[in-house]
Amino acid sequence: MTASPRRLRSDRGVVVTQLVLVVPALLMMGLLVVQFALVWHARHVAQYTAQRALAAARVEDGTAADGRMQARRSLAALGSRVLTTSSVTAERTATRTTVRVNGVVIRVLPVPGLVLHASGTASGPTERITIPAGGQP
Rank of each mutant, 00 (worst) to 15 (best):
V82L: 12
T93K: 00
A42P: 07
V104K: 09
A71T: 11
D61G: 10
S74R: 11
G79D: 09
D66Q: 03
T84W: 02
G135D: 00
T121E: 14
V45S: 03
I106Q: 12
S86D: 13
L8Y: 07
R68K: 06
T84H: 03
V16I: 15
V15K: 01
R72P: 02
T97V: 13
Q18N: 14
R43F: 00
T93D: 02
R96S: 00
T89L: 01
D66F: 06
V34R: 01
A122N: 03
Q35Y: 13
V39I: 12
L54D: 04
V23H: 03
T121Y: 06
D61R: 10
P125Q: 10
T17W: 00
Y48T: 15
V45W: 07
L75P: 08
G135I: 02
M69K: 11
V115C: 06
R68M: 02
V20Q: 04
M29C: 10
H44D: 13
A90F: 08
L19V: 10
R100D: 05
V45K: 05
V15P: 05
H117M: 12
A46I: 13
L109Q: 10
E91Y: 06
V59M: 07
T84Q: 12
G135H: 01
Y48Q: 14
A77K: 09
R107K: 13
S86N: 11
V115E: 15
T17P: 00
T126E: 06
A25Q: 04
A71F: 13
L78W: 01
G67W: 03
V39E: 03
R96K: 11
V22A: 14
V111H: 05
M28V: 09
P112Q: 10
Q136R: 15
T121G: 08
M1V: 11
V105T: 12
V16D: 03
S4G: 13
G135S: 02
L83S: 01
T85C: 02
G62W: 01
A118I: 05
W40C: 12
A122V: 03
R73T: 08
A3R: 15
A25I: 15
S10W: 05
S86R: 09
A77E: 12
G113H: 06
V88P: 10
G67C: 02
L38N: 09
T95N: 05
A57Q: 10
H117C: 07
G67R: 03
R6D: 10
R6M: 10
T17A: 15
G13R: 04
A37L: 11
I129L: 15
V108M: 08
A42E: 10
T2N: 14
E127W: 00
A118M: 06
L54M: 06
L75R: 07
Q136N: 07
S80I: 06
R12Q: 13
G30V: 12
R52V: 15
F36C: 01
S10K: 07
R6V: 13
V88G: 06
L116T: 11
D61P: 02
Y48G: 15
G135N: 01
V104R: 12
T98A: 09
A46S: 05
I129T: 14
S80Y: 08
A56F: 13
V101A: 06
L38A: 09
H44E: 11
T84C: 04
S86I: 03
M1W: 07
P112D: 15
A133P: 07
Q47M: 07
